[in-house]
Amino acid sequence: MAVINWFRKHVIAIVAGLIFFFLLVPNFVVIWMSFNKPSGKYNVKWEKFSFDAWKNPLDDGILHDPLMLSLEIALLATLVATVLGTMIAFAIVRHSFKGRGFVNSVLFLPMAAPEIVMGTTLLALFLNTFGVSFLGFKSILIAHIMFCVSYVVITVKSRLNGMDPMLEKAAQDLYATPWQTFWRVTFPLVAPGIGAAALLSFALSFDDFIITEMTAGNSVTFPYWIWNAVQKGIPPQVNVIGSLMLIITLAGIAIAEVPKWLKTSKAR
């Protein structure tokens, strides 16, 4: 009886714990394996603890070019997609214009269409319009911006929709010019949505494989490099970079959340 009662009381905590475990285990495995010292070329079996991979995260420079290319594209795509997507979201939510419904549905296409179809179509488009020499950095960037914009618009739009439109009116009523209204009221309230959209864009772009593979020409991005490496052997450095990404993301979230959390707990 006691056991059943205890179980009843804690069932939500137990289920939540299991779900978290399920979600987090892959991340822990990534970090854990980054400390491995594999005997062969494949870092798939635990052998021996070592800092070797962390001391030499680029594997003597082999990883440098693909990593830099991926970072560069991800950062640029994030920047352009976030700015563009935010502006589109504002336009859709705040203004009624001819073709608003059309724009709304078109923005869903990159998310709804299978990536492999998107990739082949884009390849055909680039080849036919610009020729084979265009494939590379530019074509990847354009493709990434295209699918990231959709996600940014959806994220920012939902945030904007959740915002009370009276707040902006109240600001104007209290002598704030449109410029001040935007920076003092609208932006601070929508910023979390924009931040989330940017993070999402970065993650989507950084690890995109299918569309990238199709449009990359001879360029080698980080995920593409790993894909190729599977045949020759994956070094633990890949795990190091994976772990670093995870840590940087968590740190970013912490920096954003902790001051807020401190402030509210102080006010109580």
Partner: peptide
């Protein structure tokens, strides 16, 4: 003074 207050939540 707005009917639904419209206070700035941030």
């Amino acid at each position: 003074v707005f009917q639904n207050y419209a206070l700035f939540p941030h």
